[in-house]
């Protein structure tokens, strides 16, 4: 049914993360977790999959002695997201 859709993006949580990141310049892991209502463990796994696909950049650093993970969408991520939305529009004939 959705064979033409990018399997990396066609997952509820990964799609939610990409939709958030396409709207902002960069966001911390905690912000994404709060907005998606996902568990930290599940979100970590999905973020890693998006990173492996080259769709997002993940920067891990320390801020005030606490670990901080910042995510940012890449050019490849933007292109993939746009292609996904276009495929959806074609499917829905919007």
């Amino acid at each position: 049914m959705f064979k033409e859709l990018d399997p990396i993006l066609h997952s509820q949580l990964r799609l939610a993360v990409m939709s958030l990141l396409i709207s902002v310049k960069e966001a911390e892991f905690t912000f994404i977790r709060e907005k998606t209502n996902a568990t930290a463990g599940n979100l970590s796994v999905q973020v890693q999959k998006l990173k492996d696909a080259g769709y997002i950049d993940v920067v891990k650093q320390f801020k005030d002695n606490y670990p901080q993970t910042t995510c940012k969408i890449t050019e490849a991520g933007i292109s993939a997201f746009e292609a996904y939305v276009k495929a959806l529009q074609e499917y829905l004939k919007v």
Partner: peptide
């Protein structure tokens, strides 16, 4: 596909 669009719309609004 409708659910996909709903997720995209909801997340963009939240951001």
């Amino acid at each position: 596909a409708h659910q996909s669009l709903a997720i995209i719309e909801s997340m963009i609004q939240k951001a």
